[in-house]
Structure formats: structure tokens, C-alpha cells
Computed example of a mutant assay.
Amino acid sequence: MRTLIARRTPAQNSAPRDPAPSRLTYRAQRLWLTPLFRSLLRVGVPAFVIAGGLGLYASDPGNIQRLQDSVAEMRRSIEDRPEFRVTLMSIEGATPVLAEEVRATLALDFPVSSFDLDLLRLRDRVEEIRAVERAELRVRAGGELAVTITERRPAMIWQAREGVWIVDAGGERVAPLMARPQMTHLPVMSGDGANLAADEAMALFDVARPLGERLRGLVRMGERRWDVVLAEGPRILLPAEDPVTALERVLALHDAQELLDRDVLRVDLRDGERTVL
């Protein structure tokens, strides 16, 4: 009798494969699905590698010095380009005397790189000049430093304890009279604190314009009121309150009765109820 031996195929020898992932694979997949882990892996690790490399490079002082020298050379090569060179300065809005004072104050040695110009600091230096009310500085095309000046307009001469000054309509000092002798035609005021009431003085000078050359000037009395001084005529004592109206009243009396041509030493208007001669 023949004995038949049945052989098993490989498929029959192995058990069916489990399709579920292993525990390690499952945990790795769960970890990868975490946004923080993905961000750390994509950004944190490269950043750590770069920072570590930079730290290692910076630990050598020679590398730092070479880097600084390279940056300085690159900056200097840019600053020295012709389009960034300032070769001249123009001053607008200033008289020739003030323009020379501005040039002397800035004392710039041209040519100079526009990167080396601190325009705000230069503007402050220009505005420290008494005759300058406001200044504007800018670099124009063609290598020109343009300085635009708003000059204080001389309005009056103020005789003060410390000297004789030219002041503007607001009482700000412009220059000593000795520096601008051509301004002697301006109206004159004197006395302590006269510059603080310059606006009132300007109004009085405007009202007193019909007096012409007879008007010598105004004197500030006690830092509270004005006296009007005439070359030929009485001294007019104005009140502390509303002096412009009082002066207008005196001029009206002069037009009607020639008051200021009479043999009178003083016209006292300090009492608002009456005029005392």
C-alpha cells in the first residue's frame, strides 16, 4: 500500500498577519499629530542648530573682529558713494549778516557724507542764534544741504540795564544794537520788563504814529504801565489798564485843542475818572 504524505503550503504554516500598528508606531503617530511637537521639530531644532553654530562662531574673538571690520568696511563703502556726499550749503530766508553767523555756527567741513550729518542737532544749534525764530535743514539732490531760516523781524529798540537790544514784536532779543547800527530808526522803549509787554508797546506805537518824529519812545514804569516821552511836548503818563484807549483820548484832545503844543509838563491819565495837566 502506498502511503501518501500531505505537505503543507507556506500559507498554511503561518498565522494571519495583524493589520494593527505596533505600540511604538502608534505612539510615534500620535506624537506627530501634536501641533507643538511638529512646530518644535520643524522650527525649534533648526533654530537650535543655527544658534549653536552662531554661538560657536562668536566664541572666537577673532571672528567677531573680522565681522565688525567687514560691516564697517561695507558701511563706509556705501557712505562714500558720490550720491551720498554733501558738498555745499545754501541758506534761505536770512540776511547776509545772519547767513554768515549761521555758517560760522555750523562750521561744517565739506565734502561730508550725509550719514554723518545729524540734522536735528544742527537745527538746534541754528535755533540757538537769537535772530533765528525757526530753522529747517534737509539734504537735497545734488549734494546740497539746504538751511531755511525764519528770521525774527526787528520791531523795536529796547534800552535795558544790560545794554541796548533790537527785539522783535514779541519782545524776543534779535541782536545788540551795536551789531546792527542800521536799525536805529526803529521805535524805542526802555525800562525793566519792557520786553515782556512788547505787544502792548507795539499797539501804543501804532496809535502814536501821527506824532511822527516828536515821539521819543516809551518808558516802562514799575513793570506795570507806560510813559510816552515826546521830544517837544509834555510827558504822557498812561494808566496800567487799557493804555491804548487812554492814548487815543489824548491824541483826540490834541487834534481838538492842540493839547500837546501847550506849555504843559505832564498829561496824567493814571486816574481813569479825569485827566490831570
Rank of each mutant, 00 (worst) to 15 (best):
H185N: 12
R161W: 13
Q182N: 12
L106T: 01
R134F: 15
A146M: 12
D118I: 09
D199K: 14
L145D: 00
E162N: 15
P176D: 08
L108F: 09
V139T: 14
L120P: 01
L120N: 11
M156I: 08
R140Y: 07
M189G: 00
D124E: 13
P181A: 05
E151P: 04
P154V: 06
G193M: 09
P111M: 10
L120E: 12
D116E: 12
L186G: 05
S114M: 09
A198M: 07
P187R: 03
P187M: 03
G193C: 05
D109R: 15
G171Y: 00
R180C: 00
M178G: 07
L122N: 05
A141P: 08
V147R: 02
S113G: 12
L108M: 08
L106K: 03
A155R: 08
M189S: 01
R173I: 13
V188Q: 02
R134E: 13
M178Y: 11
E127M: 13
I166F: 03
G193K: 08
S113A: 12
L122H: 11
R134N: 14
E133W: 07
E144K: 10
E128Y: 10
R134M: 10
V147K: 01
S190D: 06
L177G: 01
A197H: 08
V112D: 04
G193F: 08
R152I: 02
E151H: 05
L106I: 09
A198W: 04
V188G: 03
F110K: 05
A141V: 07
E144C: 06
M156N: 04
R180V: 02
A107G: 09
A135V: 05
L122P: 04
R161I: 05
W158I: 04
G170S: 15
P111N: 10
R161Y: 08
M178F: 09
I149Y: 06
R138Y: 14
E136G: 13
L120D: 12
L137V: 06
M183S: 09
V139F: 06
T150F: 11
I149F: 07
A169F: 02
V126S: 00
L145Q: 02
R134Y: 13
A194W: 03
L177E: 00
E136I: 06
P181R: 15
G142N: 11
V139A: 04
P181L: 08
G163C: 11
P176K: 11
V167G: 01
V147Q: 00
E151Y: 04
A169W: 05
M156T: 05
M189I: 14
L145M: 06
D116T: 14
I157F: 04
D199W: 10
D168H: 05
M183K: 03
R125Y: 06
D116W: 06
T148D: 07
P176N: 11
V188P: 01
R130L: 14
A169K: 07
A194H: 00
Q159P: 02
L186F: 13
R161N: 15
F110W: 09
P176T: 09
E151S: 10
P187I: 04
W165A: 02
E172F: 14
I166Y: 02
T184A: 14
V126D: 00
L177A: 07
V112K: 03
E172Y: 08
T184H: 10
A131R: 00
G193Q: 07
S113W: 02
D199V: 14
I129F: 03
T184Q: 10
T150S: 11
L106S: 03
G193I: 09
G191P: 00
D199F: 09
